[in-house]
């Protein structure tokens, strides 16, 4: 028996928004410790890694490990049926071929039950090597989304260069070029508005804007985003999901021929 309850269904809606741009279907691996999902996009350029800890749920029970393959388009249809203030409960029996979603309004005046068929997905689990990243940048997530949107007007790729002084985002194409520099913030009132750089060595990497823009669909989940970079390895873009867990995106760089 698996059962997971979230008082705020809005969180699950946001998680789904954050992954459905990159993935059409995915397997949710449920265990005693929580729910995990790891999947690459079709082109194997990016990877989504979602971790929702059992202790972050309002109620959580998982007697046996369970892998639930879901079509994310269909899951989105069902999650759209939940009111913003509803509580959501996901349930499945052991070895079930369906997952149930129950939405309850405040005071339980309205209770809606939906069942979705599960899929058997071939899933390739990837091992991600432990990396000591040369640069870790923490910045407001809305600022990062804005920069990705603005720079993607200029070209398909953007360079991210990080030094002790700051982080520079740049792009160039037919219409011209764009450069945005963010300095490390000296003092800020709110921690989430800060730009903080931890640098061991300067790094400059180039990435496809299209994927970065997809990652920024996670912006509503967190006020801050963390970018981890080292030379010639995939970028990690991480959004915390409150006390519940995190979503991490890995993106392979563009490299010199």
């Amino acid at each position: 028996m698996f059962e997971a309850r979230l008082v705020q269904s809005a969180i699950l809606k946001k998680v789904l928004e954050a992954i459905k741009d990159l993935l059409t279907e995915a397997t949710f691996d449920c265990s005693d410790s929580g729910i995990q999902l790891q999947a690459m996009d079709n082109a194997h350029v990016s990877l989504v890694s979602l971790n929702l800890r059992s202790d972050g749920f309002d109620k959580y029970r998982c007697d046996r490990n369970l892998s639930m393959g879901m079509n994310l388009g269909n899951m989105t249809k069902i999650m759209k049926c939940a009111g913003a203030e509803d509580t959501v409960t996901m349930k499945a029996q052991d070895n079930a071929d369906v997952v149930a979603f129950m939405f309850e309004s405040k005071n339980q005046e309205k209770v809606s039950d939906y069942e979705m068929k599960l899929m058997n997905l071939d899933q390739e689990h990837l091992g991600i090597p432990e990396t000591d990243y040369s640069c870790i940048v923490k910045m407001p997530s809305q600022e990062f989304a804005r920069i990705c949107r603005d720079l993607s007007q200029f070209g398909e790729s953007m360079a991210i260069s990080c030094t002790k002084e700051g982080v520079k985002f740049s792009s160039a194409g037919d219409i011209g070029s764009a450069n945005i520099k963010l300095a490390q913030t000296a003092n800020v009132d709110a921690e989430e508005e800060a730009v903080v750089i931890e640098m061991q060595e300067p790094v400059s990497l180039t990435f496809a804007c299209r994927y970065l823009n997809s990652f920024t669909k996670a912006t509503p989940l967190s006020a801050q985003v963390q970018l981890s970079m080292s030379a010639d390895v995939p970028l990690v873009v991480e959004y915390k999901i409150g006390e519940l867990g995190h979503i991490r995106y890995y993106l392979a760089p563009k490299i010199e021929d």
Binding site: P129, P234, A252
Partner: peptide
Amino acid sequence: GKHQATLSSFFFST
């Protein structure tokens, strides 16, 4: 020029 790498060059199958 630069070309897009894939994750298989960095991560390993488990």
